[in-house]
Each structure stands twice: as C-alpha cells, then as structure tokens.
Nucleic acid binder design. Structure first.
Lengths: 255, 255
DNA sequence: CGCCTGGTTGACACAGGTCAACCCCCGTGG
DNA sequence: CCACGGGGGTTGACCTGTGTCAACCAGGCG
C-alpha cells in the first residue's frame, strides 16, 4: 500500500526493511476525501500528518481580498503535511483538487520513530527540504518568469514529479487543475492563463484534455520554461518507460 | 559566541545545557567575508553548513536573461545553509549583502549530532521548516500582493525577525539592501521599488537612511502589507524593549 | 431541461516594466 | 586638493503584459 511513498522516498535515499517496517507501523488509518474539500485549515492544531496515496492536493494561502495563491501541489506518494509534525499549526490550508485517498500518521508515532531511527529521521527531514527547494523555484518562477514561462515550468515540474512517482503514461500524465487553479498556482488570472495555454497548444507544445496533459514537444516546453530539474533532487531515480507511440513528433526528456 | 543562534533556536524550543554544548562543539571555524561575495555557488558540492554570526546574506536564483530573484534573506543567528547537510548541492547561490562573520559546521559533525541527539535533530529540522514557511509567504506575496504591499510586507517581516534576534533599536533596524536588491527580493524593478518606497515615506509610514529603516507607523505598514506574523513561528518569544522615544506618533506592534 | 461550473473571447484599463537622463555622494588617485 | 568615476538613487516619458469586466458557449449533472 505504501509503494508510492517508498518510491518517492527512495529518490532521496535507500530504505531498508527496518525503515519500511517502521513507516508502515506508523500509519494509523486510511481515509477517503472528496474533491474540493479542505483537509487542513490554517492555524488549526494538528495531531497527525497525512500521506497522500491517491489524487491531487494543493496548499494555499489567501489575502483578505479573496485572492488565493496556491503555494504547493502534491500527488500520490507525497507526505503532504509532514511539516505539521514540528510546526503543529500550519500557515496554510490544504485542499483536495480531486477525490483523494490518504493515510494518517500520528505525530506520536513520528515522535517515537525519530527517537529510535536517526537515519529514517534524516530521510523524512530530507523530504521536507526538497519541498523547500520547490518553493524556491516557485518564487523564482512567479517573480521572474513571463506568464507563459510560469505555466510551461509548472507543467515540466509536474510531469517530472509524476514520472518519478510512476504516474506517467508515456508523454501523458494526469493534471486535474482547472484553469482557475492553474492560474492561482502561477500567480495570474484565469483569463490570462487561458490565453497562455492556447498559445502552448497552438504551437503544438502540449495537448490537454480530460484533466490530462500530453507533452508534444518536451524540448520546446523546457526551453520556454527554462526548466532545469536539478532542484527536484530526483537523484537516484532514472525513471522512464516511454512506451513507443504512434509515429509522431513527440519529444521527451533525454535522460 | 553563539548567543544569536541560541536566541534564534529558542524561539522554536528550549535548549538544555547538553544541546548548547553539542552545538558549540560542532562548530569548526569562524570566517569573515566581505560584502557582495558569493559564499556558495549553486550545484557545488558542500561539506559543511554555515551559521551566520553577523551581517546580512541572501539566497538567489537567476534566469538565463540575467534576471535575478532573491529567494531568501538571512540575518545574524540564522543557519543559512543547514539544508545543504542533506541536500549536498544547493539549488541556489548564497551571496553576502554586507560584510559577514560566519561559523562553519561540518556535515560530519551534524551527522554525529543527529545520530546522538534526536531532540536537537528535531530542533534543527524545525528551523528548516520555518524557512519553508517563510518561502510560502513570499510566494503569496509575490504572486498576489501589489508592489507596495510586497515591500511593506518584507519590511514587516525583517523587522519582526530582527526583533526576535535582538537586533532592533526601538523602531529602527538595520536593513542594508539597495533598492535593486529589494526589488529583486520582491520580484520587481528597482525603478518601481523606488517609487513604492517614496510612497511609504511620503505617507510617513517608514523612514530610511544609512541602511537603516525606522518604522513610523506600524499599524499602517502592517495594514498595507496584510501582515500576520503567525507564519514566522516566533512562538516562545515575546521580544521587545522599545526604549521610549521622544514623543512622536510612532506606532509599534502591540504584542 | 435548465442550471452551474469551467472555458473562451473581446474591449479596455492599469500596474509595473523599459529606457534614458541626471543627481548625489563618496572613494580613489594624481 | 581637486578631478574623476562609479554605484546607487530619482525622475520623466512611454510601452506592454496582465488584469478587469462582461458576455457567451459547451458539457455534465440533478
């Protein structure tokens, strides 16, 4: 059941049997949550962290005027609020974008685990540091990239992360954000998001339908985005499997 | 010598004698670096983390076009690249904004320390999580706040952090960024930064001179910024000392 | 069948970027 | 002592990417 989590964490470091067992033991229960539900509200006191098993979730903050900013996106295998273990209260909401299945890990269990297993502690810490790195890249993106660059960059990022999690199907992957949400993640209006997406489609860079994105020209997309995957720290992993596709000018990441 | 660090970390959790000793022992050497020097270059392999004892430092990333984004600011007491302990290579540069004094902590020492002291490990982890929270607030700021709001917010943040570090002098604190750098931190042009600053000064909200900022009307500033310090997790601390000032309409944070 | 959400479009407004000049201050060197 | 050079700040004129507003369309669901 934790295969996604293990896959995710193994991009950071190898897990031995003991680590896996400790993690499995830490989980208390699995819950299902419908789409567009708030899992965690900012400032509420938390007693367990949640592990995403299936679906898409976002973290968001907003201003008094109602403007919302999505500050992070998570997919299956991500520990979505591991940071609540130490922070206790979060600075943001966590909202489901799709129906979601998730496991709870009581903070007490994490406490025990970090007391007993320094190596696993470092791996968990490491995973929060990677989140941090993603945050920094988003700051760069929103602060400096053009509208189309931000969108292209986010698509590159989510494709790579999906691939690392074994969730891609060749050049396609699930990307269930509405244009409004995509805009909120990129710090721009849904109207402008719409126009930028049209531009990417017009130029045959990506295709979208049914909540899925299909990358038609990776090189071009990465170029528009100035995408360099180093910040994702996907070291260990050299994932892939690109089932051969009907002959077409589809270009995918080389590595 | 580590008083700033201890003060900083005690806003997260209390340190006992053993913790303090362990930290002190971990430090190998102290270095001085001039202003505008690159301490760490992105992607270089690191073997120790640096603790800032004095001065201002920023983390920055840039685009091919040369546009630069400052993704974080650090002052005395901050562990500026603790995350390199696990990440090994950083995703950004670290550059001094002023002359700086800093201590090195070899990763080997951190390894030992995290092996032996789970509680201290959690505190260190916690401090990186707080950085993360600040990143998220910056994403919100750059993504959604107006130009003037971003600047006001950054000033509020740095004032609060300075205060927590015991570096304020009443309503004044050291803020040695040029307008160019301030713009780079807020994702805007130095020209626009200049105009927004003028507006804040014209309305008697802040005064600036000699690399120092003096807050004249905290309520108004926090209002423009929509500032809520919760994301800084300055829990424990109720810092202050506002030496009474010559009667004037200076308004400071209530708490 | 009719609503409601999400996508699309056009006309227009404006925050913020660009470019270019000019100023002041301060440090350096002749 | 002064000339100079360069970095930072300031200003004005102008441009443009993105926001705003409002209408309309398509598809899914009760």
């Amino acid at each position: 059941m934790l295969t996604e989590l293990f896959a995710n964490m193994e991009t950071l470091d190898v897990l031995d049997e003991r680590d896996r067992y400790a993690l499995e033991r830490a989980i208390s229960q699995v819950t299902n949550v419908p789409a567009h539900a708030t899992i965690v509200r900012a400032n509420s006191r938390l007693t367990d962290s949640k592990l995403l098993l299936d679906g898409y979730v976002c973290r968001c903050k907003d201003l008094a005027s109602g403007q919302r900013q999505i500050v992070g996106l998570h997919l299956a295998g991500d520990f979505i609020d591991l940071h609540s273990f130490l922070l206790k209260k979060l600075d943001h909401d966590i909202v489901t974008l799709t129906p979601v299945r998730m496991a709870s890990v009581p903070h007490a269990a994490l406490e025990r685990l970090t007391e007993e297993n320094p190596r696993l502690t470092r791996i968990l810490w490491h995973s929060t540091l990677r989140d941090s790195s993603v945050h920094r890249e988003w700051i760069l993106s929103i602060g400096q990239r053009s509208g189309i660059g931000r969108i292209a960059h986010l698509i590159c990022e989510m494709y790579m992360r999906s691939r690392a999690a074994g969730l891609t199907d060749g050049a396609s992957f699930s990307f269930p954000l509405t244009q409004i949400e995509l805009g909120e993640a990129c710090g721009m209006t849904s109207v402008h998001t719409n126009r930028m997406l049209q531009q990417l489609r017009r130029e045959q860079t990506v295709a979208m339908s049914m909540k899925k994105v299909r990358i038609l020209d990776w090189d071009r997309l990465a170029d528009i985005a100035e995408f360099d995957p180093a910040y994702l720290y996907l070291n260990g992993l050299a994932p892939l499997s690109f089932p051969s596709r009907p002959a077409q000018a589809i270009r995918l990441p080389a590595a």
